[in-house]
């Protein structure tokens, strides 16, 4: 038997985690949960916050933004559970809730939750998220289920390729949760430097984006992810054009700082039954 050494103090297992439930005031950082539908975001949310957001085995169950909080080490975090989405370009309203928060909610860290059995399909969203923010941690969930099906995910290879921390977890049993939160804490505080994989467009495309960027920033000062807006405008996205001219974009950005109040709290918590 070895005697405990000082290394224990910095070991993730030793760091204390506290579930703070629905009290989201006085937090130090905001963490968002993104991912494809039915990858276990709400299960992870419940495991970390101690809340009882409704979970179920079908895609499309979460349609509103749910917020909870947890403490890890000395810092308090707000955790935002988002509806599942396959892409950041989608149009249905639940997916819009997710997209708007990821783009304009200024999360300090975005956790992309992936289903270990469907890495390829889940990577499409992960790459899109990596294009708009550096502060990403990838959680490969349901690894138990994947290994039962004979699927093995090399998280180190994923981490190397994506340029962000990748942590395998089982949200249902809470396996490896501490390691995930350690990675989240590092990225949220900026201690962990990430080098996100970006799919480079053509040189012409990049030049056009760079020309448009300052103009957008002049029209909408302080807009997070002006780059994404520039790309959408170059693409001729009518919805984004309207949002920019009507000033709706600014309202949208402001709204991301407010809890999702369009529904009674209890109905939202109860979720779609």
């Amino acid at each position: 038997m070895q005697t405990p050494s000082s290394a224990c103090d910095t070991c993730p297992v030793h760091t204390e985690m506290a579930r703070l439930g629905a009290v989201t005031t006085g937090v130090d950082a905001v963490v968002a949960l993104a991912g494809n539908p039915n990858t276990g975001k709400s299960t992870l949310f419940n495991a970390v916050t101690g809340l009882r957001q409704h979970t179920g085995n079908w895609p499309g169950k979460t349609v509103t933004r749910a917020e909870g909080a947890f403490q890890f080490g000395t810092r308090r975090y707000k955790l935002v559970d988002l509806p599942g989405t396959y892409s950041l370009l989608s149009a249905s309203q639940d997916e819009e809730v997710a997209r708007n928060f990821l783009l304009f909610g200024r999360p300090d860290c975005t956790v992309v939750v992936m289903d270990a059995s469907a890495i390829e399909r889940n990577l499409y969203l992960a790459l899109q998220v990596l294009e708009i923010t550096d502060r990403v941690v990838v959680a490969v969930n349901l690894i138990d289920e994947a290994s039962r099906r004979g699927i093995e995910v090399d998280v180190r290879s994923l981490a190397r390729d994506l340029g962000v921390p990748v942590v395998p977890i089982v949200a249902r049993t809470g396996e490896n949760l501490m390691a995930l939160l350690t990675a989240v804490a590092g990225v949220a505080s900026g201690e962990t430097r990430t080098t996100p994989l970006r799919t480079a467009g053509t040189a012409d495309f990049e030049r056009a984006v760079q020309e448009l960027l300052p103009m957008i920033e002049a029209v909408a000062p302080g807009l997070p992810n002006a780059r994404w807006v520039a790309i959408r405008l170059l693409d001729g996205d009518a919805a984004v054009e309207v949002a920019l001219t009507s000033g709706e974009l600014a309202a949208l950005v402001a709204r991301q700082q407010q809890p999702d109040r369009r529904f009674s709290d209890r109905l939202a918590l109860q979720g779609a039954q």
């Binding site: 890495i119 990577l123 899109q128 004979g150 995910v153 090399d154 290879s157 390729d161 799919t199 467009g201």
Partner: peptide
């Protein structure tokens, strides 16, 4: 851009995922 994302997705997942059997 979209097709380059897909190419990247395929490359990354081919390196990271290994399928041993198809039980389950």
């Amino acid at each position: 851009v979209v097709s380059s994302i897909y190419a990247e997705v395929e490359r990354v997942s081919r390196r990271a995922v290994r399928t041993i059997g198809t039980s389950g």
